[in-house]
């Protein structure tokens, strides 16, 4: 499959954190995985710890589609370039990828669980 060349005149990225990647060039396969427990808690102290093993969302199998779609696709590139004048990105986080160039196969998975523990005196319902 013929692939085009990406031409980016100007790329400005502020931060690439938490196993994120900024890749300029071609990649055959990428498989980013994110598992997050986010705790928002009011009150002066933090006690207790949150483990991935304790919560079923992190044990469950990812439900990947089982079959490939039976589509035969033929692509003809009449212009061998992809032009982007400028791209400006503030942040890439949590196993994200900024990719200039071809990325053949991508299978990405993300699991996020939130905890919010608020104190009644601040939230009279």
């Amino acid at each position: 499959m013929s692939k085009r060349t990406s031409v980016v005149k100007h790329l400005k990225t502020n931060s690439v954190i938490n196993s994120s990647i900024q890749n300029i060039g071609d990649t055959h396969q990428a498989n980013p995985v994110t598992r997050v427990i986010a705790l928002q808690k009011e009150g002066p102290t933090f006690q207790g710890d949150l483990q991935f093993e304790d919560y079923s969302i992190f044990q469950r199998e990812a439900n990947w589609p089982d079959s490939q779609p039976n589509v035969i696709k033929r692509t003809v590139h009449h212009n061998p370039y992809i032009h982007v004048n400028n791209a400006s990105i503030i942040a890439a986080s949590a196993s994200s990828i900024i990719h200039v160039g071809n990325l053949n196969y991508l299978s990405a998975e993300s699991r996020i669980k939130h905890f919010r523990i608020l104190l009644a005196q601040f939230h009279p319902d």
């Binding site: 990828i97 990719h99 990405a108």
Partner: peptide
Amino acid sequence: SSSVFLIGD
């Protein structure tokens, strides 16, 4: 969260 910004095929 495992998102991708792709400029390419």
